[in-house]
Amino acid sequence: MGIKENCFKKSLWVFHLSAGSCNNCDIEILDLLTPRYDVERFGMKLVGSIRHADVLLVTGIVTKKTKARVLEVYEQAPKPIIVIAVGTCPCTGGIFTSGYNFAGPLDKVIPVDAYIPGCPPKPEAMLAGIVKLLSQPPKSGNPRTTSEAQP
């Protein structure tokens, strides 16, 4: 196992970025921290700075004004980083695709590792998405798995 896989074995620190969302997904992400779901027992933690994060959660459509900022945040992130698109908006644009301020789905802006669709996805769905991502054999070409091929 390479060092890059090793990074994601234990406590994941999560940075949450709202690119232009309706708040629903953001509140549901926060909900994960509260007693009902309590992801902190798995070592997952929301951090206030991207420079400390292993995972970048993006919610909301990428608007033309945020596009540059999303790129900037991605650049500041320590690599390897897992990018997760939470909600229908970053996955496809959903209902906002025809808007004049829509800059494209998230994967046209930065590479995305996992998509959790739903409007909003239930907290359980978010957990399931993260578990799926971590338990699957890493794809080649993904920045976090460039070290060596997995058997």
């Binding site: 232009g20 004004k65 945020t66 025809s98 004049y100």
Partner: peptide, 9 residues
Amino acid sequence: YNHRGIEKI
């Protein structure tokens, strides 16, 4: 930043 042009949509 969060302007999505909803009125137009």
